[in-house]
Nucleic acid binder design. Structure first.
Lengths: 225, 225
DNA sequence: TTTTTAATGATAGCAATACTATCTCATAGA
DNA sequence: TCTATGAGATAGTATTGCTATCATTAAAAA
């Protein structure tokens, strides 16, 4: 049996649904490759169009601008990750083990998921690490937020906060701790590879040490005192 | 007695030292105001020149491009903050109290410092919160790092890591915890104001709650077990 | 089968951005 | 008095970000 995974996306993120057409899927696939390769600043719709073999105007039919496209692919990632979390923690009773699973999913290299043909989750993970926060670090974050563009991120954060509360219902900062885990899973990885003296993992560059750090941080905090 | 504070800046950050001339100081002052007002993406040297009453070419004599200018002002901020940390923790023996002071300096509104006439530290603090990470989240971060452009950030991180080790010499992740404190002091503030459901402080928007969260996080982690 | 529509391709154009170059002029030191 | 330096003025160029128009094709509806 072949299962296909579809992440339902907020319609305000695009002008025309890229999942519905061949060109749309190419836009997603190639934009992930190009942003991974050159970074978001040097990424333009012109270059993307050339890469795909279509025209700039063609891309603009799907996305208002490159920032909306970035929000789209980050939102997709958060939606996909929430699915991974739900799937991988299903039937686990011990909330501490669930939380460890979450940390591992956030902080270690993603295995490409065949259920989504046109998206390379590993490249996407790398993009989220380096560019993810640029999706919301803007002057128009509040307007974007009113349009629910960051809902997948906030939903994932709420799920993690829920698991934290399962571990210790009296812990006072479940949401802040959840967003800290998410952000630090990525920032410590970025620092480890690019500004190693900001971490304790510069020599080995081992993702599992980021996991150990986060587990130590999280379980020290939520342990009942 | 009037004391003037000068932060010594890496010469690779600029083409001509902005501290040495009137125009240079205007560039720093007005760029802080403009980036604060419009965000870094909409900030251009053209607009800055018009704001100051000079020409675009005039700005380019001081800074290679707007990204270098962003690194300059963030580097200045980290240098200034390290001075604040050193000054404010001087003569404190108890490392835990030092660490609390550090968290407070990082996470609460900055009082404008008269010792630096042309720089508004409060606006600068707001800029660091919203734009600070864009200084290093680029494809050329490693080259920039080789030129020591992020030294002030890394130095501050090392100072904080030192205090953490004073609290508990056996703690395994002093640097990662230090960079986590720095980043989260800013991100939790940004989230609290712009994406409140990612935090537990959305209703009150009280900076002191960010301080409480960080203190809880840090001291839970480094307490000897 | 014909008609309509939807998606794409091709081309043009325009205002803003990110620079570079050159020339002049004031002025402050040597 | 000469000369280096800082700064204003102007021009120009490639790229970016975005909009508009028109033709073509393929699939869906009539």
């Amino acid at each position: 049996m072949e299962v296909q995974l579809q992440i339902k996306m907020n319609e305000k993120l695009f002008l025309r649904d890229p999942e519905q057409t061949e060109l749309g899927k190419k836009i997603i696939r190639h934009s992930i490759q190009l942003i991974y390769k050159n970074g978001f600043e040097l990424f333009t719709f012109k270059k993307l169009a050339e890469d795909i073999g279509t025209t700039e105007a063609g891309i603009y039919r799907y996305f208002e601008n490159k920032h909306r496209l970035l929000i789209y692919i980050t939102a997709w990632y958060w939606g996909w990750l929430q699915y991974q979390v739900t799937f991988n923690t299903n039937n686990i009773k011990d909330p501490a083990i669930k939380l460890k699973k979450v940390i591992q999913l956030l902080a270690t290299t993603v295995v490409d998921d065949d259920k989504t043909m046109h998206i390379n989750e590993d490249l996407l993970h790398q993009i989220i690490i380096a560019e993810g926060s640029k999706a919301y670090l803007t002057k128009h974050v509040s307007e974007d937020n009113k349009e629910q563009l960051f809902k997948p991120y906030k939903d994932l954060c709420a799920v993690i906060a829920g698991i934290i509360l399962e571990c210790n219902p009296k812990y006072k900062y479940p949401r802040s701790l959840a967003s800290t885990i998410i952000e630090m899973a990525h920032f410590q990885n970025f620092f480890m590879h690019n500004l190693p003296s900001l971490t304790d993992f510069g020599k080995t560059k081992d993702e599992l040490k980021v996991v150990s750090f986060l587990e130590d941080l999280v379980f020290s905090s939520i342990r009942k005192k």
